[in-house]
Simulated assay, not measured.
Amino acid sequence: MKRIKIKVPATVANMVCGFDILGMAIHEPYDEMEVKLTDSPEIIIKHEDHFGLPEDPSNNVAGVVLQHIQKDLNLTAGFEVTIRKHIKPGSGLGSSAASAAGAAFGANVLLGNILSKQELVHFAMFGEELASGVRHADNIAPCIYGGITLVKSTAPIDIIPLSTPDLFVIAVHPQVEVKTSDARQILKKNILFKDAIEQWGNIAGLVTGILKNDIPLIGRSLNDVIIEPVRSILIPKFGEIKTKSLRLGALGGGISGSGPSIFMLAKKKETAENIAGMMKSVYDDIGIESFVYISKINPVGIEIVEKEY
């Protein structure tokens, strides 16, 4: 195979209480990537978007991933990657993870699917390390596996795909930037033991609710007593949007990744649409442009759009 075109979905990491271990793929927004296998060993990165991301492979998350694949597999071939990003960098919707996971996925297909999904996660995490300084997989895993994933461990890599509840995801992206690296720096280094116990209960409840399709349990478990109280101060109108979403019938929700995007879960489409309208209105009222997405949980993850042999 010479060339592949793929759709790489946005992801919601943490899912409120599962910091760095839980994540889910959604249908919109998504990036478009074209990956070509070339005869020369050079890695070429091209961006067909307006975000001004570096195209030097060593400074580009997709490029770094491909460099590691090339080195570890002793490849004499190279890659040419064209990226059209619709997931804005710094949105909290897994923009860097999409580029990293898409590069690993595309290269693997072109090479004959010689890598397992866990190996794809391993290589894609090098891109996340470049972007945020940490080799985390909470966005990478659902992007590659689809649906909702639990990252039990990254050393060694142990990814557990969970069930996919029939729920609507509402995500609002206010046009302010919160860098993942900055959002990590403000986190507390020590937490109270009672808070840790409460958080463990919420994580266990959320995973159990997902596996048993127990929607009320999912709603009761969407509570974060450690990360959200600190990070929410970086996001305009976070408290108002969360309170109003719950009044409109949301199961719960919180910060998507490191923010500034906020997500909510709902059982019915009408509820999701009402929440989406409220989110847009809240930001319109204070003069902040925002984009709102309504999506089911994406059970597939990265999708192949076109192949060329």
Rank of each mutant, 00 (worst) to 15 (best):
P260C: 06
E308W: 15
S281T: 12
Q199R: 08
C17P: 12
S163P: 02
E48I: 12
G63L: 07
M279Q: 13
E28W: 04
I203T: 03
A272G: 10
I157F: 10
N60P: 13
L120D: 02
I297E: 02
G18L: 06
V169A: 13
I170K: 11
A155E: 14
M1A: 07
I226R: 07
G146I: 04
D284F: 14
S258G: 15
I186T: 01
I44V: 15
M33D: 05
Y293V: 10
F291L: 14
A131Q: 05
V61I: 13
N223P: 00
V151E: 08
S95T: 04
G254W: 08
G52C: 09
L115V: 00
V225A: 03
I114M: 10
N14M: 00
A77R: 12
K179P: 13
N202R: 07
G209C: 06
K36V: 03
K212Y: 12
F19H: 08
K189Y: 06
K237C: 12
E306D: 14
F126W: 08
I144K: 02
L234Q: 13
F291E: 14
A124I: 02
S181G: 08
I43L: 13
F126C: 01
P260Q: 05
T164R: 02
V292M: 11
Q175H: 15
I87H: 10
K280D: 13
Y145C: 02
I26W: 03
V225K: 10
I140N: 04
S290Y: 13
G259L: 09
D182H: 14
I197W: 05
K242T: 01
K152P: 12
P216F: 05
P142Q: 01
G102Q: 04
I170D: 09
P89W: 07
I44Q: 11
K88I: 15
Y293S: 11
I160M: 13
G201Q: 06
H27T: 03
D158A: 09
G102C: 09
A77L: 06
I69R: 00
D49P: 11
M264C: 15
I114Q: 06
P165Q: 01
L246T: 04
D72V: 00
A171S: 15
K188M: 05
H173D: 11
N59L: 12
M24S: 10
I114T: 07
C17T: 01
V282Q: 11
A124C: 04
I43F: 14
N108K: 01
V12A: 08
D56Y: 05
S256I: 06
E303K: 15
E306N: 11
P142N: 03
G287H: 10
G301Y: 07
S221I: 07
F123I: 02
G112N: 00
